[in-house]
């Protein structure tokens, strides 16, 4: 049970870092990293929740692997778009945030 709490707390801390990064950082690459932190935090908790019964439940592992693939594709698309936008406009920020950056 203490193990599970440890994982849950680690996950919560990661999610917290991610949310902070999402709100406090304007640079789009930092936001992508923030999204990945939140996702990792959720996966840590998800993986730990597999151990709650007598035997370890294998389903969360399968779902986490799928989730990682999804997160990787989304990150790749996001980075691609950010690079393309930076090439066209010279900035990796969203428009109304250009002025005060």
């Amino acid at each position: 049970m203490t193990g599970l709490s440890l994982y849950a707390l680690t996950g919560a801390v990661l999610v917290g870092f991610g949310i902070y990064g999402l709100l406090a950082k304007r640079h789009l690459l930092r936001r992508v990293i923030a999204f990945n932190l939140i996702g990792s935090g959720l996966f840590v908790f998800f993986g730990a929740s597999a151990a709650r019964g007598e035997t370890v439940d294998p389903v969360p592992q399968a779902l986490i692997i799928t989730g990682i693939v999804v997160a990787l594709s989304a990150s790749a698309l996001a980075v691609g778009l950010i690079v393309a936008k930076a090439r066209v406009s010279g900035r990796a920020l969203l428009p109304e945030e250009d002025d005060d950056a």
Binding site: A74, L77, A78, K85, L94, P95
Partner: peptide, 19 residues
């Protein structure tokens, strides 16, 4: 440039929604 900005903003909302 405008389309990229719109797409990135969409992606930010979509990813936040997914998480």
């Amino acid at each position: 440039a405008r389309a990229y900005a719109a797409a990135i903003r969409y992606l930010v909302y979509a990813l936040a929604g997914s998480l």
